[in-house]
Design a binder for these strands. Structure first.
Length: 273
DNA sequence: GTCCAGGCATGCA
DNA sequence: TGCATGCATGGA
């Protein structure tokens, strides 16, 4: 990987296995919007970003400072992880062998714990299009505008000032009561996300399961997408269908990277089942 | 109009 | 421990 600054852009070359469509629009993050030129715009880590992939494969982080790249986006896009090698390992599995060839370039985004946890509470019993709709309303109403029309994900402290009806007004439905208590718990420090991130997987999962409105699926999504636990393996209605292909449990080649395997299988299921 | 979506809490056996 | 049920809402 080679990183250089060109005018106001950061240009990263030599990154293999990163497809913007497959990674930014595959149901792990809900705030990226494809632009007419094929690039993606969104807000993450409190920064507005437009990212594009050049013909030669270079990643172009438009109007990005070295500071925000080093401190946030480098890790957010998981640029230091060798996905090429991971995919080779996963391809020992028959189903993934063809799936990875077909959908090459899915990465796990290392999102912020609070945004991931809150987003996946909203996600339950909901479709991706409507999850995006609700989260976009939430950010517009209670986030900070960091670029013209682009808002940060609201802090737990800000959301802790809301009542159930405020969430209802955004279309959160029956999840509103969960969100009220989640925001208040995080804002008060009763739920300590940084501490959860530092725990071993099983203990971190146990802590998340104690939260009102968080079950096994939401916990695993948060662990994988927001707490950097690559072994977390979320099973939703799509993955339940996939699991019929693994009657004897997950293959050994998934060990330690179950979550990455899951993301390929999830995408395959949504396209084919 | 009916069905479904990156499920969960609750009650009951 | 396991299973049935109710839950909000927008898109297909």
């Amino acid at each position: 990987m080679n990183i250089k600054t060109v005018k106001n852009d950061i240009v990263v070359s030599g990154v293999k296995c990163l497809d913007l469509d497959l990674t930014l629009d595959c149901g792990q993050a809900f705030r990226w919007e494809k632009q007419d030129d094929g690039s993606y715009s969104g807000v993450a880590g409190g920064y507005f970003l437009n990212i594009a992939k050049a013909q030669n494969g270079d990643l172009i982080f438009h109007n990005t400072t070295e500071d925000s790249f080093d401190s946030f986006f480098r890790n957010y896009f998981d640029l230091d992880k060798n996905y090429e090698k991971i995919c080779e390992t996963l391809k020992q599995d028959d189903l993934l062998s063809s799936t990875i060839d077909e959908y090459y370039g899915i990465r796990i985004l290392n999102q912020e714990p609070w945004e991931a946890l809150c987003s996946f509470v909203i996600s339950q019993q909901n479709n991706i299009k409507r999850i995006k709709l609700i989260i976009s309303r939430l950010c517009r109403a209670y986030g900070d505008e960091v670029a013209n029309g682009w808002y940060t994900f609201p802090t737990a402290e800000r959301l802790a000032t809301l009542c159930e009806d405020d969430f209802n007004a955004l279309g959160c439905g029956y999840r509103s009561k969960y969100l009220v208590r989640l925001a208040q718990g995080v804002a008060s420090g009763e739920i300590d996300l940084q501490k959860i991130k530092s725990l071993p997987l099983e203990e971190a999962r146990k802590e998340l399961l104690n939260i009102y409105g968080v079950g096994i699926k939401v916990a695993n999504c948060a662990l994988l997408f927001g707490f950097q636990f690559y072994s977390a393996f979320p099973v939703d209605v799509w993955m339940k269908r996939v699991m019929e292909y693994y009657p004897n449990g997950l293959p050994e080649c998934f060990d330690g990277i179950e979550g990455i395997a899951q993301q390929y299988l999830f995408h395959w299921a949504r396209q084919n089942l």
